[in-house]
């Protein structure tokens, strides 16, 4: 039966067989992914809609320029390209796991599933680092006539326009909190005023204000709040998909090891898990496009 000779002149739609020659489970998985594509599509399109309704939107190259262990080096898009490659590679290992399944090669399936799971975990680790960096990495922002240190959160966005009006900034220093002034004086000292944090902490606000070099501090206005909401919302929803994909893959791995598929005679479940995993990769391609590239 499993010959290709039957292909010719087959009446696919006449009933009694699948018109696509696919078993129902794979069909359902495909249509589920289709449906999920509309969930992600709706998220990304609302992001686009909000973005087009704003006069200003942060440049992703400015926001995503950090790399673990590289300190303050300006490396735009470097880390996210690592994440993208991790996901592409884990997609490739998944293809190989499915292929091994086709051949009934249990050892191959186990090996490649392991690599896929590791890839997924590595991606999640990267995402956790990136979120942590964005949330805790605070930036000087001019808010209502004073300077504040805020991170990129669901409700705050430090990536507005760079304030070029130095007189306004100098005026703002007068109402800025001590803590922030210490930070600014430490990071952006005027020439010849650099001292240790301990020394700065003991100084008065007036003294500190005189020491901050506002022209080079890259102080910004607040940016559009929705930027953070969408970034965490969508990458979080994608991360949740990666996470559930890893869980599914682990279950598949255990089932493979327990010979469930070998006894069943086919590894179709691996194929379905594979479809899901590739979809996660596919969504990332678009998240990557919408948040990091354009």
């Amino acid at each position: 039966m499993a010959t290709t000779g039957t292909v010719h002149q087959t009446k696919w739609w006449s009933g009694g067989k699948s018109p696509f020659n696919l078993e129902y489970g794979k069909l359902m998985m495909w249509y589920f992914l289709m449906s999920d594509a509309f969930t992600f599509g709706a998220f990304l399109i609302s992001y686009g809609s909000i973005r087009f309704s704003q006069n200003f939107w942060p440049d992703p190259n400015v926001v995503f320029n950090a790399f673990p262990g590289a300190g303050h080096a300006n490396l735009p898009l470097a880390f996210v390209s690592v994440m993208t490659f991790i996901l592409i590679v884990s997609s490739v290992t998944m293809v190989l796991a499915v292929h091994a399944g086709h051949k009934g090669d249990k050892k191959g399936v186990i090996k490649w599933m392991w690599w896929t799971i590791l890839g997924g975990l590595a991606f999640l680790g990267c995402q956790a680092w990136e979120w942590h960096h964005l949330i805790t990495g605070e930036h000087a922002v001019l808010v209502d006539g004073k300077i504040e240190m805020i991170g990129q959160t669901m409700t705050g966005n430090p990536w507005g326009n760079i304030v070029e009006d130095n007189t306004a900034l100098t005026a703002a220093l007068n109402t800025t909190s001590h803590e922030t002034l210490v930070h600014l004086a430490h990071e952006f000292p005027k020439e010849g005023t650099a001292t240790s944090i301990e020394a700065l902490e003991k100084m008065s606000n007036a003294q500190l204000s005189g020491m901050v070099d506002v022209a080079h501090a890259h102080i910004r206005e607040k940016g559009p709040v929705a930027f953070g909401g969408y970034f965490y919302g969508i990458t979080g929803f994608h991360g949740f998909h990666v996470f559930s994909g890893v869980i599914i893959n682990i279950v598949m791995l255990i089932m493979t090891q327990k010979n469930v598929f070998a006894n069943r005679g086919h590894y179709l479940m691996i194929e379905k898990a594979g479809l899901y995993w590739h979809f996660v990769d596919l969504v990332w391609v678009f998240v990557f496009l919408c948040f990091y590239l354009i």
Binding site: S14, G15, G16, S18, P19, F20, Y24, L27
Partner: peptide, 8 residues
Amino acid sequence: LNLRTKGM
């Protein structure tokens, strides 16, 4: 799609 009887 998949489970129509023969002839359907």
